[in-house]
Design a protein around this nucleic acid. Structure first.
Lengths: 219, 219
DNA sequence: ATTCGCTATATCGATACGATATGATGTAAT
DNA sequence: ATTACATCATATCGTATCGATATAGCGAAT
């Protein structure tokens, strides 16, 4: 789950850990209140798996040196970083690798997720990386989940006023989420129809991104 | 967090694990989607800490036998439970102890919590165990958290339509939660005033919800 | 000067999750 | 009647995440 978030953000350019967290808090606001205690281990994990790599200050814009034995010097630099009295810079900037990008695509497309609210919010905010069909499937899946949650929250019998207020508020929230999803679904359908005018659709009809038009409905 | 939920539910009478989970799912609906992988270890934890105890089928309504050497037989029964071919009953019913009740009160009253949505929902659904002042404090604390979250979710600049829709939906949700809290706060204040008629307060000082002052800040 | 607050990385122990195994029990189909 | 299946129920394993805490560089205020 965190891996997905990190790889997704890194897809728009190299970042360091602190900044990744800042964006997660600001962008997914509620959805992701990730702590350092999970973020840094996750970055280490991803680095070990070669999904991301640390970018050296000189590289910055240059693509990976294509290869070759990375000299001992380089390795030392990577681990040493920030010798107390010298050396400057304490940031550790990460860049996504090709392997990481593939991993991201895989994670994003997996149906059957550990899927609360957060997971959906995360996936949807990366929806531009999905095809129209996958987007719709994601929305429908989430909708089904919410509908089921509504079903599970049976009667509020036997609850005192306090507990009942919690349940009722929750139910309202879920209903609201469903309405929101319905808007998104309608918007997606409308867009698909526009992009694929039935019989016409000659040839190169929409690879993927292009103009998301309006998921607007949201409001 | 789970301890709080378990002890709170057990406060209304003995339950077994599966039933605890069922109630958490139904009652706190969204708030608590606890898994068995956390529930059973939590129960074991609480039992080890003597916050809960396993109730034997004959006890049911009887208070703990007051003491004395619990014979080896009893201990054996407790651990053996459900010998394949004999013995009946596979449920393990837990009852809260005095120590557990004290622990619950302590947990419920701790300010400075691991406090997402869930934690607040849980606490509020047990609000009847709190004094009026503690209830108000809980509401105000939660409100402040949400206001701050709104602040953190800065501009939606640089985000594509999908990501933006997530942020906007989240912001609306938070605003809605704040308004809800304002209603609860107003209701609590009204109730306090009614219970403590101050100097004058000639009778019906208009309780009711509505008119939550101004949630202002939002948006 | 030094204290304060912010950026930044890192680790530790406790907790929670998701998958999975196992068995009992009730209930419907063959 | 036996089989098959869904549901109730407890339990454990590995991994992910959390919250607290430590460390340190750095710029601004006191």
């Amino acid at each position: 789950m965190l891996d997905l978030a990190i790889l997704g953000l890194l897809g728009d350019g190299p970042l360091h850990g602190y900044e990744i967290r800042r964006r997660l808090r600001a962008q997914m606001g509620l959805a992701a209140n990730v702590s350092f205690g999970s973020l840094y281990p996750a970055l280490a994990r991803l680095e070990a798996a070669a999904d991301v790599e640390v970018v050296e200050p000189d590289d910055e814009a240059a693509p990976p040196p294509a290869t070759g034995s990375l000299s001992g010097e380089r390795a030392a630099m990577r681990s040493r970083r920030l010798v107390p009295g010298r050396g400057r810079r304490s940031k550790k900037v990460y860049r996504i690798t090709d392997k990481g990008a593939a991993h991201f695509a895989a994670l994003l497309n997996t149906t059957s997720n550990g899927d609360d609210q957060r997971s959906f919010g995360l996936r949807w905010s990366f929806a531009r990386h999905l095809g129209p069909d996958a987007r719709l499937a994601l929305l429908e899946r989430r909708r089904a989940q919410l509908v089921q949650q509504l079903g599970d929250a049976e009667g509020t019998d036997g609850l005192d006023d306090y507990a009942r207020s919690v349940v009722e508020h929750a139910v309202e929230g879920i209903s609201r989420d469903i309405a929101w999803l319905d808007d998104l679904i309608a918007a997606e359908r409308a867009q698909d129809r526009r992009a694929t005018p039935l019989e016409e659709a000659h040839g190169t009809a929409v690879p993927s991104e292009s103009s998301p038009a309006q998921p607007g409905a949201a409001r």
